[in-house]
């Protein structure tokens, strides 16, 4: 039994069958990559996992509990954090404040009317956020407005924000899309470090084969809304079906 079990999931947009009969099992403490050509339904699948979309058929179980019908914040509180295709951070807030918000969410839950104590008196949250910033190598940028960070730093911050919640499953949607080579390599190193040092499962959607083969222990290939194969990276590389459906296109 994997930590995430997707069974027979289907999703239709009008006349388009975006997902059909998707089965996926993500084992605990692995890095599981989901690859496939553009429009294969990768992002749609991810949206079904985090409560942004509700699948028409099938079930999604996380750690033995169904996530279907729950709001995104509830699913996050269950232990699933998500990194978006374009970094989603609190652009108007400082880097430090960005990091404090998930720490508050971890400590206080989905809602807490904490309207009279000052932020500056929340010692444990401040320490936790500070610690996480240091881990992300962003401590010296703590007073910057986060909208003014570089793309790579925004991504780093977003990943840090997700990690500060200590999720059991981290979902990443094309984390290196639109990044310069140097930023991409930094992100790969960061994710490798996270996978090695933390008790965490990572599911990553990626287009860039270099990123996929540097990180993944297990790969699922999605084509036209259904999984084509699921295998270890070495076997995927040699699989003729995959070459035809995906690698052949990009090569």
């Amino acid at each position: 039994m994997g930590i995430l079990e997707v069974k027979n999931v289907g999703k239709r947009f009008g006349g388009l069958q975006a997902l059909s009969d998707v089965n996926l099992s993500v084992k605990e403490n692995t890095v599981h990559a989901i690859i496939g050509p553009n429009g294969a339904g990768k992002s749609t699948l991810l949206n079904c996992l985090v409560g942004k979309l509700i699948p028409d058929t099938g079930s999604v179980m996380f750690d033995g509990q169904s996530v279907l019908g729950r709001a995104p914040y509830e699913i996050n509180q269950m232990g699933i954090s998500r990194v978006f295709q374009t970094p989603e951070i609190f652009g108007d807030l400082t880097v430090m404040e960005n990091m404090m918000i998930p720490c508050f969410a971890k400590r206080d839950g989905a809602f807490m009317l904490n309207a009279m104590p000052m932020v500056t008196n929340q010692k444990e949250v401040l320490e936790r956020a500070e610690h996480m910033l240091e881990e992300m190598n962003m401590a010296e940028k703590r007073h910057m407005q986060s909208a003014s960070l570089s793309r790579g730093d925004k991504r780093r911050l977003e990943i840090g924000m997700c990690l500060s919640q200590e999720p059991r499953l981290l979902l990443l949607d094309e984390p290196t899309a639109g990044m310069a080579r140097a930023d991409t390599n930094n992100t790969i190193d960061l994710l490798k470090e996270i996978a090695a040092e933390r008790d965490i499962t990572i599911a990553i959607i990626e287009h860039d084969m270099h990123v996929v083969f540097s990180l993944a222990n297990r790969i699922t290939v999605l084509a036209q809304g259904t999984p084509l194969v699921e295998d270890d990276p070495e076997n995927i590389r040699g699989n003729p079906k995959v070459r035809e459906a995906y690698l052949g296109e990009t090569a």
Binding site: A71, L93, M100, P102, A105, D108, M116, P117, M118
Partner: peptide
Amino acid sequence: FRSPFGMMLRAVKSNQQRMNYTGLN
């Protein structure tokens, strides 16, 4: 304004999507 609650309200204005995916209602 200076409380954690005030910070959450500014977070609502800044990015509600991120807020919901950060476990906050």
